[in-house]
Design a protein around this nucleic acid. Structure first.
Lengths: 338, 338
DNA sequence: GATATTAGGTTAAACGTTTACGTAAATGTA
DNA sequence: TACATTTACGTAAACGTTTAACCTAATATC
């Protein structure tokens, strides 16, 4: 492997000068610059980021940890992240942790060993163990689509409560009163509880009763989860006319179940999803859904992280806007608005 | 940041001994081992992989480059990759290149600068520029779902020709004779041409004519691509009874188009996909498709790469099995087989 | 003409490890 | 007892950079 030393030799100068030329600093004549560049070119020199990192104490690398969330969410996040890491000359190390604590801890430890400049922690519940470790290693961290009350680590999220509220509100505005909920795990403080509470709040605000039997709790936001919850929900509550599923995958599962049960969507029952991933377009009928700006969330998270890496110490919280995307899975009976 | 030196000081020994203890080598007494471990623990020492890499010349990191292929394919590949990198204590740097040459070259250069131990190059056409660079830097590389005739770099793939052949053969066995093809880009030597040729070969073998007007060429294997190709294809050829789309996303687009055109799937037209990503389950009717073992492809690729990194120089090619997954989008009229 | 400044370099230390080599003490062997 | 071997360390070099500190000659300033 060819080093700065060999370049210096060939250019008949010192390694310090070579370093300066290569880093566009000053302190050399045009003549030596040319000699150095020529020598580097001829030798096919490529700088060694490891050696460089060793002394500047920056790796220009960030780490991203994902639990086992939906493929499409992961993809959108990652694309948003790469959009800005690319522009800022950062590399990204990704780890899937499948929400397993040992795997998560190992991932964090490895990221620290490799001296990443910052970490994006996505979508997973933040346990005390994680938090303690993150605080101990003391490198910039931002939470993406999660947060922790116990720390001042900044986050990028949508407001899950408000988003669920708006989704249900949209159904109510379209004259639905018997609205079922296919929820996340009721122990999940991030994507579980807030959406359940948003659902309840929307009903209450409209003066509708909150009926526990209209709520089914899922576990992993998956297609199959949504499918079986839907069957169960509708079999036991034939009077439901709309259901809000807290992920697009669940909503797609519900649609497939409906097809199999001979239920017309949206003729008999309207279904609303959450996320606005690609799946909502592929489903038939196409899913009306509550959109999170996933890609933007990814890019905002890195922007924030890079700011922190560059030294800005003030810590912001970013709450991005959500919106309802109307497609074909909800019957529109909205009389009051345009 | 706390170093081996400080640990040595606190344990009243030398840095060499500390290093030996921490790396489980021998050459120290039980007593000093305890002292060192205790000191390290108390100081919260965590080793610095950068400094380590500097001298051992290994980073335990690999790079993976993705073009802009389907989110679900990317996800499956990455999961397969992580399954085995995790077990082997490697980290993975991922770069999305969106098939842009400058971005690709920059990604490769960065990976080399950061001295990754190996590279997995996925799904993209291998240009001479890429190949030259890969050969120049001389680190282990494996191609995943792509290959190059011009080099001996090993690859992990399915046989696209045979897979497409089998898909079309399946349609023929189910008594379809007028079979349309929604193909990839006819300039794409990886996922384009071989699948087109497989389609043609299956027809020929069955004594069916190859009719150019039954073939539509897409560009990016996307949902919208499949949707508009299908509309076009069926409008101009009402006698078609089955269509093979060379990606699940395209096939889903075709299904959606069919719904909008009032065509019953599979009653009037059967549709077959390719990939067996999650989308094929979500589509309605669920897609009968040609399955690639995506996750396994990812894990086999890293296994091979790690073998090469560890020093095995013989280069294997891995061609994994494909299969037809029967769901509901193809009308079964198979009289001859069970 | 004397001094200060600048341009254009060089030398060497530093980053945090691993490891080859040296050596003194402990242990084994004849 | 004498010698050989092994154990348990310590010292220092090395990895490939960046950069502070230093140097010299040329130019500018008065």
């Amino acid at each position: 492997m060819i080093t700065i030393r060999e370049v210096a030799e060939r250019a008949q100068t010192s390694i310090a000068t070579v370093s300066r030329v290569l880093n566009n600093l000053d302190g050399y004549s045009e003549q030596t610059k040319v000699k150095v560049l020529k020598a580097a070119e001829e030798l096919g020199y490529e700088s060694n980021a490891i050696a460089r990192s060793m002394i500047i104490k920056k790796t220009n690398t960030i780490g991203v940890v994902f639990p086992n969330i939906s493929s499409m969410i992961t993809y959108e996040f990652l694309n948003g992240i790469e959009d800005v890491t690319y522009k800022n000359d950062f590399s990204v190390i990704v780890s899937y942790t499948y929400s397993q604590p040992e795997r998560m801890m190992k991932a964090l430890r490895t990221l620290y060993e490799k001296r990443v400049d910052g970490i994006i922690f996505t979508s997973d519940e933040v346990t005390d163990d994680y938090l303690n470790y993150l605080e101990k290693i003391d490198i910039p961290v931002v939470f993406l689509s999660t947060k922790s009350e116990k720390s001042t680590i900044p986050y990028v999220k949508v407001n899950d409560f408000a988003a669920a509220f708006d989704a249900v509100d949209y159904l109510i505005k379209n004259e639905h009163t018997n609205i079922g909920l296919i929820a996340g795990n009721p122990d999940d403080t991030i994507a579980g509880i807030p959406r359940i509470e948003g659902y309840k709040a929307a009903l209450k605000k409209a003066g509708l009763p909150v009926r526990e039997e209209f709520i089914r709790y899922g576990y992993d936001f998956s297609f199959n989860d949504g499918k079986s919850r839907f069957e169960d929900l509708i079999n036991e509550n034939p009077d439901i006319t709309a259901v809000f599923a807290v992920s697009d995958e669940m909503a797609s599962g519900a649609i497939t179940a409906a097809h199999q049960m001979g239920i017309d969507i949206p003729g008999q029952i309207s279904i609303m999803g959450y996320d606005n991933t690609m799946i909502s377009e592929v489903a038939y009928p196409a899913l009306t859904t509550l959109a999170q700006p996933l890609r933007k969330m990814g890019s905002e998270a890195v922007k924030l992280l890079i700011k922190m890496i560059k030294g800005d110490q003030f810590k912001e919280e970013v709450v991005l806007d959500h919106s309802v995307i109307e497609r074909q899975s909800v019957k529109k009976r909205n009389k009051s608005e345009s």
